[in-house]
C-alpha cells in the first residue's frame, strides 16, 4: 500500500523527468547539433570579416553589427515608450472606456504575425515618414512589435508591488511621480527586465519585420548613419540557406550559432542585473 506522500514523490519525479525531456534536452540537442555542423566554420575570421566571393567565404561581421545595432535601436524606442505606457496604465490611468481600449489593443497587438508588422513598418516608416529602408525604420518596426510584451511584462511587474508601499509613500506626502519613482519602480525592475529581455531576444531573431524595412541582401561595409541599410543575422541566415546555390552548410549553422549566442548573452546579462536588483527585494 502506497502512502499519499510516496505517490506524490513519484508523480513529482515523473513530472520533473518529463520537463527535462521536453524542454532541457531539446535545447541542448539543438545547440549540440548546430555546433557539430557549424563548429568548424567558427573562426576569428568568420566573426571579424565581411563576406566574400558570393558570401561563400569570409565572415559575417556586417550582419553581427547590424543585429546588434538593431537590438540597441529597438531598445532605445521600445523601452521608454513601453515602460512609461505601463506606468501610465497601472499608476495613473483611471479605469474607463479609453484605458480599457488601450489594454485590449495591447493584448491584441501581441497576437499579430510579425510579417504584418513588417508591412506596417514598410508603409509607415519607409514610405510615409520617408525614412527609407534604413536602421531607423527597422528599429522602429521591431520596437512596435516588442511593445506589447514590454508593456504587459512591466504592467505585471508594477501590479505585483504591494499596494501598501504606495499607501505609505502617499501618506508621507509624496507625489504620485515620487511614489512611482522611489517606491514602486525599484521593486518592479526585476520583472521589467525579464519581459524586456524576452521581447528583445525575440526582436533579435525576427526576419519578417526587417525584411522590407532594413535588411540588406549583401552589404559588406558597416553602417555610417541611422539611414543606412544593414545586414542582419536572421535575414542573412535566411538568404544563405535558401537564396544562394552551393552554399556550404556549415556557414549557415555557424551563423545560427552566433545569433543564439547573442540572445544567450543578453539573457545572461539580465540574470546578473536581476540578481543585483533582487537583493533589495525582500518583503
Amino acid at each position: 500500500m502506497m502512502t499519499a506522500k510516496t505517490t506524490q514523490k513519484i508523480a513529482f519525479v515523473l513530472l520533473g523527468l518529463g520537463t527535462l525531456l521536453l524542454v532541457v534536452v531539446p535545447i541542448l540537442l539543438t545547440i549540440l547539433y548546430i555546433l557539430v555542423n557549424g563548429g568548424s566554420a567558427m573562426t576569428w575570421e568568420f566573426l571579424s570579416q565581411p563576406p566574400r566571393n558570393g558570401m561563400k567565404e569570409g565572415g559575417i561581421l556586417p550582419a553581427i553589427v547590424g543585429t546588434v545595432v538593431l537590438i540597441l535601436g529597438t531598445m532605445l524606442f521600445a523601452l521608454p515608450l513601453g515602460i512609461l505606457s505601463a506606468v501610465y496604465l497601472v499608476e495613473y490611468a483611471k479605469d474607463n472606456f479609453f484605458t480599457r481600449l488601450i489594454k485590449l489593443s495591447v493584448v491584441n497587438l501581441s497576437g499579430i504575425p510579425s510579417i504584418v508588422y513588417g508591412l506596417f513598418g514598410l508603409t509607415l516608416f519607409v514610405g510615409f515618414c520617408r525614412f527609407g529602408t534604413s536602421i531607423l525604420s527597422g528599429a522602429l518596426t521591431l520596437a512596435i512589435m516588442s511593445l506589447p510584451v514590454v508593456i504587459t511584462a512591466t504592467k505585471e511587474a508594477l501590479e505585483s508591488v504591494p499596494q501598501a508601499f504606495r499607501e505609505v509613500s502617499f501618506s508621507l506626502g509624496a507625489t504620485r511621480w515620487q511614489t512611482v519613482r522611489y517606491c514602486v519602480l525599484p521593486y518592479a525592475i526585476p520583472g521589467i527586465l525579464t519581459g524586456t529581455v524576452l521581447s528583445l531576444s525575440r526582436a533579435a531573431g525576427e526576419t519578417a519585420p526587417i525584411l522590407f524595412t532594413v535588411a540588406a541582401f549583401y552589404l559588406p561595409r558597416l553602417p555610417h548613419s541611422v539611414y543606412d541599410q544593414v545586414m542582419a543575422l536572421p535575414y542573412h541566415l535566411y538568404v544563405i540557406s535558401t537564396q544562394v546555390p552551393n552554399m556550404p552548410l556549415k556557414l549557415s549553422f555557424a551563423t545560427g550559432f552566433v545569433l543564439i549566442a547573442i540572445v544567450f548573452l543578453m539573457n545572461i546579462a539580465s540574470v546578473f542585473l536581476r540578481a543585483h536588483y533582487r537583493k533589495k527585494k525582500t518583503w
Binding site: A164, F165, E167, V168, S171, L172, C183, Y187, K280, K281, T282, W283
Partner: peptide, 11 residues
C-alpha cells in the same frame, strides 16, 4: 500623517 494597522515598513 497615517499609521496603518499592520506595520508597513518599506523593504
Amino acid at each position: 500623517g497615517s499609521i496603518f494597522a499592520l506595520p508597513q515598513v518599506l523593504p
